[in-house]
Nucleic acid binder design. Structure first.
Lengths: 145, 145
DNA sequence: TTCTTACATTATAATTCTTATAATTTATTT
DNA sequence: AAATAAATTATAAGAATTATAATGTAAGAA
């Protein structure tokens, strides 16, 4: 369940001298609950009922903190604002070029690519990013008519 | 050579009713010559000697056109501005997390990933993006001292 | 070749996303 | 419970990108 992962994330934060605040908890909760990949603004809007005085800066600040600790990943696409995804299991994303929908899919981590890149370039490789682009079933249908 | 690929790109544009202008040619030439991955602003600055009156908007507009035709790829990272890369052979990028340097490396296209994603998600997959992150040899040395 | 028209460019303003700043508030330590 | 270090807020500033309107130009037709 999402709750266990949330708890793990909270524990991870405690170990790194990062204080737990209601705002931080709410942002994390929202990220883990919604299995979507919200933008900073979406998070801000979703929580303004609970925290009418919360600042957008708080959302951005905390997303940066979460990224540094390693429990959140930033997804950047050309068009608009960044999206944020909690780092849970090893999954990748398929993104619809038409409507922007993001769908997760599982695939074994591309470790071979990392090691090859390391040998060929002399870099000390830490991680990678991979996304697949195409058209989602809905958009495929729309274009047929 | 870069010249042949440039010619191919120009031909591809002619077929799609996109007019060839001196500015467009210069932008393409710069992209194919420099095997780096310049930002829109870098392109703008590089060409202001040749085109003192060229507008930044022109660079952005044309990069968008090139992207739509499929001869240029946009690489977006969270922090700063997008970088642009001409779509040539199948190569991927290793990016230094410290200094931002981008180095190409060859690797067989990840076709299996695309087909798997297609089957699992029902998307019609067209392409993918993959990057490896780490620290370049230079930055590794710096941090040792 | 010249004319015409639709497309490109320019210059500027506007937007949008994100970060910086300073004052206030709050969580943790002593 | 007091002290301190960090987080939040509100606002302003910054940077990257896009929109707008006027002017200029490429490419096909006469």
């Amino acid at each position: 369940m999402a709750n266990e992962q949330l708890q793990e994330a909270v524990d991870a934060l405690k170990k790194t001298k990062v204080r737990m605040t209601p705002q931080r908890h709410a942002i994390l909760e929202f990220l883990f609950d919604s299995m979507s990949h919200p933008t900073a603004d979406e998070i801000y809007k979703a929580l303004e009922g609970k925290f009418p005085n919360m600042s957008v800066a708080t959302v951005y600040n905390n997303l940066r903190v979460f990224k540094e600790v390693g429990i959140v990943k930033e997804l950047t696409y050309g068009d608009s604002s960044s999206r944020f995804d909690c780092v849970t299991t090893d999954h990748y994303h398929v993104i619809c070029s038409d409507c922007g929908k993001i769908v997760d899919f599982h695939y074994p981590g591309l470790d071979e690519v990392e090691t090859l890149a390391e040998h060929v370039t002399g870099f000390q490789v830490n991680n990678h990013r991979m996304e697949v682009y195409g058209r989602c079933p809905e958009c495929k249908n729309i274009s047929k008519h």
